[in-house]
Design a protein around this nucleic acid. Structure first.
Length: 141
RNA sequence: GCAGCAGGCCGGUCUGUCGCUUACUACUUUAGUAGUCAGAGGAAAGUCCGGACAACACAGAGCACCACACUUCCUAACGGGAAGAUAUUCGCAAGGGUAUUGUAGCGUAACAGAAAAUAACCGCCGCGCUUGUCGAGGUAAGGGUGAAAAGGUGGGGUAAGUGCCCACCGGUACUAUAGGUAACUAUGGUAGCCGUACGCCAUGUGGGUUGCAAGACCAUGUAUAUUUCGGUUCCCUUAGGGGUACAGGGUUGCUCGCCCUGUUGGUAACAGCCGGAAAGGGUAGGUCGCUCAAGGUUGCAGGUGACUGUAACCUUAGAUUAAUGACAGGCACCAGAUUUAUCUGGUACAGGAUCCGGCUUACAGGCUUGCUGUCUCA
RNA sequence: CGGGGUGUAGCGCAGUCCGGUAGCGCACCUGGUUUGGGACCAGGGGGUCCCAGGUUCGAAUCCUGGUACCCCGA
């Protein structure tokens, strides 16, 4: 097998304020504890299959150091495992994703990694099932 | 050695794999790839002060409001800092905390208490009579209340008493000499001048407002749009303009003053013009501002010190949904368990966002200088 | 990043400027009224005044520093 692309460039990040607003207004949500996933399938603007943002609420973590630490751990887990999801995104489309950290405590990297893998699996299932969205797999695990 | 006080400094490190941001170089080509260099703090924090910088405003004067207030100095500036002065308070001590302009005027001091500042409840003292649970007076030495009670002690004097008078002590005001740049200190003299706390007030100094989401440019996009309120007077003049009056606006808290604009039809409607307000529409992408600065390090000189001068050297983050990381292992340090070598767990507070100077708050552990107390040994 | 505000009874708020008694409405408890309940009448309980220092004889109130929550700014 060829080496998967492990880089994380600016193209793969969600930067535009408009798209963020669009994602949180029209997007769908699913749970993959300890993160909440907000996603939306749109027409592609450039060649990146996904555009993603990571968020840790200020309400739960007062100190900026802790927020940074968690965000970096999520980002790292995503960077190393995003290649599992990329082949399942349809041609000419683009997936907007937001990963929001929910827990109130600082979890170690292994737990964060587990949550991110679960999120990727669920997104893969969603992509594989149908282009038109289904409401069947509301998360209750 | 132990305990402590004051000041200064540091605040993990190394290797491997993958990855992020800026700059530079090369190659493809206008976006990527490869390589190299650099990549959070002493508080980056709280946003409590002061500046720089930017936009807007601005003839000027007074009032109000806010902040500060011992002295001398440092500084771009400060409500900051240094060295000192006085009072008070904590500590055995080294030291630490707090306060500090004024005496012209005014106010307040709950409850208790006779009375909270032009003090008679009890008591004391003589006087009067209708001789008693009496009356009108004098008296701040004694009592109890209170956070605070009319300078303290002793003597003289007195009907009894009181700085009423005297001695000593404490304070205040004025003053002389000596020391100090000064706040002030020491010693002496004069004046019986003698409650406390807080506030108002007064005096002096400073303050235009808003802040990099300031602001500039490009792109996108729109609308000389809509509703509502107010004003549109007179004389000279062809007009421009001038005079008087009025109206509106500006002067960013208020007043005076000043400046600017307008004054065509008799009135109303209406139209036009001017001004105010309401609601509404568009953008939310990029570039600049954006890091070389009241810069840093080292040496020398001056100063008790904050700091200043000078010479040489150095360039040290500029992100913008927001980089500086994740994982694995070794070392160092700390704690616990066994026990003297391993195992397990942990490694502070905390992350730039225009930039500086301070203050305040948080902080595992460690280094260092000076000093204080105490114990043992010599 | 920069401005501004608020923490008082279970809930919503006064009192803070100008220091001395913590109060109002709803809710709660007891009694009355009613066949019973609601409404009504009478009485009652309940407070680390966000936290810690300081000023003062005395602090919800004044001063200083924290903390939590909320609002506004192209």
């Amino acid at each position: 097998m060829t080496l998967p692309q492990l880089t994380f460039k600016k193209k793969e990040r969600l930067c535009l304020k408009k798209q963020v607003g669009q994602l949180f207004e029209a997007g769908k949500a699913l749970m993959a504890y300890p993160v909440r996933v907000q996603y939306l399938l749109v027409d592609a603007v450039d060649d990146a299959p996904c555009k993603i943002l990571f968020s840790v609420p200020k309400k739960r973590f007062k100190r900026a150091v802790k927020r940074n630490l968690i965000r970096r751990k999520i980002k790292e887990a995503w960077r190393l495992h995003k290649h599992l999801l990329y082949p399942h995104v349809p041609e000419g489309k683009q997936l907007l994703i937001a990963l929001v950290y929910l827990d109130k405590t600082l979890l170690p990297y292994q737990s964060v990694l587990k949550g991110v893998l679960k999120a990727i699996n669920k997104l893969t299932e969603t992509m594989a099932e149908a282009p038109e969205p289904h409401e069947n797999e509301e998360p209750h695990a």
